[in-house]
Design a protein around this nucleic acid. Structure first.
Lengths: 334, 334
DNA sequence: GTGAAAGCGCTAACAA
DNA sequence: TTGTTAGCGCTTTCAC
């Protein structure tokens, strides 16, 4: 049974060495003799000693903590990202301090992160004042915007090519012979939504088509369901819908099948975006565009580690390729 | 633009007060005059000063950090829990240090948590040596096992009544007139699986029924799909299946509908457990038992806060009531 | 290779 | 109310 607070001094006393010898034993690249090391380790074991990471961080200036800010975990894309990110950072010897935002103001949350001396920050929350990122940069702390970016900001960002993804879907739906192609938007100010929509328009235009109708789902399931009902209330309903993310697309499919008794893709094609795990579940079998979360995480961690080591905070915008994944929720090009 | 390392001494110098005056200004219940406070705040603002939480924690002995250990986030039950837990702890002035387990050994992870002087630990990962919890207890750190427990252990746990939930499902399926009721198990050693299965058998027995067949899905989608195929390979297939959690139930439903071309609930009833968000999605419309994640989180936080304040680490097993939620994936009792 | 001593940034007595 | 003085537990020179 370990005593509540075993310090390196306690270990030193038992091992009959100096306190600094204990410290050295627990410091990877320090010079300690085999003998000393053994005695220290034995004593430490007996006492149940574990170095105090906080004290260590205080002096070394390296907390080993990365702050992660997320808005919500309903959309399965984010849990997947958090899991991968946490595992990846753990492998690199870092820990994740997780903050949820949305209710309180982000400002306070970022302040809190900073007080905890995080060595880097990953922001995967929607609303983001570039001011916050700036404050981190001022403190010399690398920040990566994940799956979002702020125009004309020097903050690093990692996204997938949402414009190209949208374009592919525009091409795809037009090529399949659809004539009334609609769009259900996400959160309108989000860079993901703007890029996907812009690419979509471009993709349609390339085939001489235009967006038939539009509604806003704000990246929520409820909003998406409402948007779907709205689109089908029109005298001419759409025969294909690009829903700005998978999370909303599922809700849209439910409304179409259950409330409107229409068949997918016979009556209407549905395509989403993200390729979350559920998109491949047979009940939805959703055609979508994959956001490569694995590579996105790799880039994020790489930027973080690089900037932490070099102390240079230089903005870098990484855009990874998106990939169209055709499944059964959409008619195939003729 | 804030200098990288502004300390309380810098602020004190600029404000022409002592360093302790600065400390007091940033300590909630301290006695500072209006005048001093204002001067300190002004100076702090000008310098962009933020107290170093690590240094504060070092001396106060309170890190304000709660360690959370999770195994995987595929099953949507856990993201929901993490989101609520993080928000709830943030409200109480605590932060979440998140660790994923499963790949590496949990032992190292818990060591790491302890080194970071966490004030409490929430364990929501499957495999758990009671030894780990014991080590935390030795250090006087409260531990709460979330959605799992270890028999005859003094560690606190918060679960829902899995036995009763299983019993309700046993009654329900038997009452609906099913004659070949099967069970697809989760991870067999998990307390959730054992309790649900035990309750299920009891519920069936109360109606003079027994479990017709059984397979193991190990709480994974792939394992569940395989288990479903196995059950239907028998000369006599089941006409109802209790799948040990919703996450697996979705995979089972996909196999039944897509591969076996059977209708739910006409040919076979499916019931799950957890009531994750997707269970109410119309494509599945899954009958299930709700685990009250909100109240479970409340209890978890209450236990943590209580033990942190009283320093008394006393095991407490909280079991919250489960609730049957009948949807369209199952035949109704006649 | 080892110990003594200084100090990371802060809080908490203790006097004044 | 204030400033002075000790440390919190550790890393890291610096002599030896």
């Amino acid at each position: 049974m370990a005593k509540p607070n075993v310090t390196s001094a306690d270990v030193a006393r038992l091992a009959r060495v100096s306190q600094s010898a204990v410290s050295r034993t627990f410091t990877p690249g320090a010079s300690v003799s085999q003998d000393t090391r053994k005695r220290v380790l034995d004593a430490a074991n007996r006492l149940g000693y574990r170095p105090n990471a906080l004290a260590r961080s205080l002096i070394s200036g390296k907390s080993g903590i990365i702050g992660v800010l997320v808005a919500y975990l309903d959309n399965q894309f984010y849990p997947v990202v958090i899991e991968k990110l946490a595992r990846r950072l753990q492998e690199n010897g870092y820990r994740v301090l997780l903050f949820m935002t949305g209710t309180g103001d982000q400002d306070a949350v970022v302040q809190d992160m900073l007080q905890y001396q995080v060595e880097g920050v990953v922001m995967a929350s929607a609303h983001l004042s570039s001011d916050l990122a700036q404050r981190c940069a001022d403190n010399g702390i690398p920040v990566v915007l994940f799956n979002r970016y702020v125009a004309a900001s020097p903050t690093s960002s990692v996204t997938s090519d949402n414009v190209e993804g949208g374009r592919m879907l525009g091409n795809f739906l037009a090529d399949a012979g659809h004539e009334r192609i609609a769009y259900i938007a996400g959160f309108e100010e989000a860079s993901t939504n703007r890029d996907r929509e812009a690419g979509f328009h471009k993709g349609l235009a390339e085939r001489g088509a235009i967006c038939f109708s539009r509604a806003v789902g704000a990246y929520t399931a409820i909003g998406a369901a409402e948007a779907a009902r709205e689109l089908f209330k029109a005298s001419e309903p759409p025969d294909a819908i690009f829903v700005a993310n998978d999370h909303m697309a599922f809700a849209v499919m439910d409304v179409i099948r259950t409330e409107l008794s229409l068949h997918i893709p016979h009556d209407v094609s549905i395509v989403g975006y993200d390729d979350v795990p559920q998109a491949s579940w047979k009940a939805y079998d959703l055609t979508t565009v994959e956001q490569p979360s694995g590579p996105m995480i790799e880039e994020t961690v790489a930027i973080l580690m690089n900037q932490i080591e070099n102390k240079a905070v230089i903005g870098k915008a990484v855009v990874l390729p998106a990939r169209l994944i055709v499944r059964g929720s959409s008619r195939l090009p003729v």
